[in-house]
């Protein structure tokens, strides 16, 4: 049976090290009891959402703050990330599959492949990601 602990809410600086610290904290805490596949998927979703906020939302300004919330829901987890930036045209990139010759632009693609549901606010400065955990295999006759 997959167990999750109560959710968490954090405000972090707009910097890669802050993203790493939060992910380290999650690995040891909230995500520790999840199966490796789900642990990886949640951390990956969180990293992509936060990195997007750092690079595009807050424009790598360390003074800027990013709000992050992780909530257990029935059968899964929900991640909310909000930055104070001007947002971006998320509709334009929603269905774009990056060509292998291009080394950027995979973050959004990962969100849509790893989340069960992706919801951006109108201007794209907030994102809500829901992942429903895969059913664990059980032995049966």
């Amino acid at each position: 049976m997959t167990k999750v602990q109560p959710g968490m809410r954090r405000q972090l600086a707009s910097a890669g090290e802050a993203v790493d610290r939060l992910c380290g904290e999650l690995r040891a805490g909230l995500l520790a009891d999840l199966p490796p596949r789900e642990r990886f998927a949640i951390e990956l979703l969180l990293r992509e959402a936060l990195t997007n906020a750092v690079v595009h939302g807050a424009g790598n300004r360390r003074a800027a703050r990013i709000d992050c919330e992780i909530l257990p829901i029935a059968g899964g987890l929900r991640i909310r990330v909000a930055d104070g930036g001007q947002g971006f045209e998320w509709r334009r990139w929603r269905n774009v599959i990056p060509r292998p010759q291009i080394d950027r632009g995979r973050g959004l693609h990962i969100l849509y492949r790893y989340a069960s549901e992706v919801r951006f606010s109108e201007n794209g400065s907030q994102v809500e990601l829901t992942r429903i955990f895969a059913k664990e295999k059980q032995d049966e006759l």
């Binding site: 992910c23 990886f40 990293r47 080394d103 995979r106």
Partner: peptide, 13 residues
């Protein structure tokens, strides 16, 4: 243990 889209971008480069 972890590789994200930026890491994948480096591998593609």
């Amino acid at each position: 243990a972890m590789i994200d889209s930026t890491g994948l971008g480096l591998l593609l480069s």
